[in-house]
Amino acid sequence: MNSTVVTSPTTDIHAALAQAARPQPSRWAQRLGWGLLLVVSGFALLGPWLISADPDRQDLLNALAPFGGHDWLGTDPYGRSMLARLAHGAQLSFLLALLTTLMAVVPGVLLGIVAAWRGGWLEKALVALADMIMALPGLLLVLLVIAFAPGHFIPLCLGLALALWVEFFRISRARSAVILQQPYIEATRMLGFGPGYILRRLLLPALAPTLLTLASFAMSTAIIGISTLSAISVGVRPPTAELGSMIVELLPYYAEAPALVLLPSLLIFLLVLALQLISGGRKS
């Protein structure tokens, strides 16, 4: 019996996607990407320092103030400064998203490479595990992990990562299997280079662009995932500013102050766009 038991066809597309996304980004797109990333991450990293307003300070009588007043971006329904909340929110969200993505990418990629490298029963076992996890609804996993320590960040990231790692495992396994069969790898081995060298110099560089594209989508998935969890009240606790939960908090006011709901989404959009521009997009 061969590996069909546990191999799912999704590996095909990941392999195809991986090949397709080979990096030859046009220079202007990449520059634009770096520029955007600099602006967005600058806002997230330095914003909380530079903006003196307290993101949690409420002023109920100054609720939903318009743009351009004392608070540049107006205030939220509690009269808190939107600018300060966006800066603090961006910092926390990007950090959580980065952490979640790392927690998904590192084990996912390592296990994927190990599976492709070693093959045999180890590969079958790992693929079976990944398939099992995929067959369980992601939301169930997240809810279950969170339920052990509601309101804490680490279980939140862990739960999301538990649902996200499978994708990275599948793609790096499929891609590594293709690469490891290439003649040049065989040649490198014959020349006496060890697995560490092959991993660092040949395998990871070949995997990197695809992984970066996927990881940038995974970051937005993580932030949106947190917002979805906030919508069913298991996300971040008040009064913490976090982009996803801010969207949920501001949603009821969409008719009165539509810009408020869209601002956090805009930040997520810019971050993902920057990462995508840097990593992908092929010249014609």
Partner: peptide, 9 residues
């Protein structure tokens, strides 16, 4: 939860 956040502040 909204009232709780206000009471907190």
């Amino acid at each position: 939860p909204v009232l709780a956040t206000a009471i907190q502040a």
